[in-house]
């Protein structure tokens, strides 16, 4: 058998010189005409993009096999980051709500009229007649302070004060103090008392006075500061058997959804 020699014997010198010349030419061509490279990129980029996308997706499999531990650590890190971000988002949303609340108060210029402390509602009692706020004696809260919403609507009164929390009895609670109110527009006098179940009524209204549904009720300024909104006249009850007429109150805040309140310090 005849041995086969790999590689061609001799006669290559010219080819090599030719190739070297080609290389030098190419070097000059590409250094002076970058547009050629640009054309090549332009021509191949769609194919490369497709292949790259495909490779990027398919590479997950190899990564999974060869970098399992790293991927697990990465997933853990990402989970931690996600939780931190969720917490940050919640915090920002909370601040946004607080800002809206404060803006409403600023629009009414409450801060000029009263010395206010803002507080979050922490919880309600089982009957829903009182609520716990996150400000207490450490924040300058004391008993009998008036609690209002950002829209100057009367919520209730502070009845118990702890170091960092206070309990507020809402005007709808049956044990809430009675207080005098005036019904607009004729400023008819009456007394508000809580009826439980998020309801309250104005009692002791002079029978002679005409009151209409939908008219506003404001505080007279004895137990609570003057001119705080209490609600609207809902239904007027006038019977011959009773010496006075009554009116149920349509509250201007939802006791179940209240989140932030202002406490009037003075």
């Amino acid at each position: 058998m005849k041995p086969l020699k790999i590689g061609r014997p001799g006669g290559k010198k010219r080819k090599v010189v030719f190739l070297v010349l080609c290389l030098i030419s190419v070097f000059f061509v590409f250094n002076f005409f970058n547009s050629t490279a640009n054309s090549v990129y332009l021509f191949f980029s769609p194919t490369q993009k497709t292949l790259s996308d495909l490779g990027s997706e398919a590479s997950f499999l190899t990564k999974y096999f060869f970098q399992k531990e790293e991927i697990k650590k990465e997933i853990e890190r990402l989970k931690r980051e996600r939780n931190e971000l969720i917490s940050e988002i919640l915090s920002l949303k909370e601040r946004e709500r607080e800002n809206v609340f404060l803006r409403e108060a600023l629009d009414l210029e409450l801060e000029k009229e009263f010395n206010l402390i803002i507080a979050d509602v922490s919880s309600f009692d089982v009957t829903g007649g009182s609520l716990l706020i996150n400000k207490g004696s450490n924040d300058g809260i004391s008993e009998n302070m008036t609690v209002i919403t950002s829209k100057k609507v009367l919520v209730g009164q502070v009845v118990e004060v702890y170091d960092n929390f206070s309990r507020v009895i809402m005007i709808t609670h049956s044990q809430s103090p009675f207080f005098d109110v005036l019904i607009q527009p004729n400023m008819v006098q009456g007394v508000v008392r809580g009826k439980n179940g998020f309801k309250a009524e104005v009692d002791l209204i002079n029978k002679e006075e005409e009151i209409e549904k939908g008219k506003g009720i404001v505080t007279k300024g004895e137990v609570f500061p003057k001119n705080l909104f209490v609600g609207l006249v809902n239904e007027v009850v006038k019977t011959d058997a009773e010496p006075f007429q009554k009116a149920s109150i349509q509250l201007l805040f939802d006791p179940r959804k209240i989140e932030k309140v202002f406490i009037i310090k003075e």
Partner: peptide
């Protein structure tokens, strides 16, 4: 070459 520069590069270990 196209496969090398766009597909295989994703499979680095």
């Amino acid at each position: 070459f196209l496969i090398q520069t766009s597909f295989i590069v994703h499979f680095n270990i």
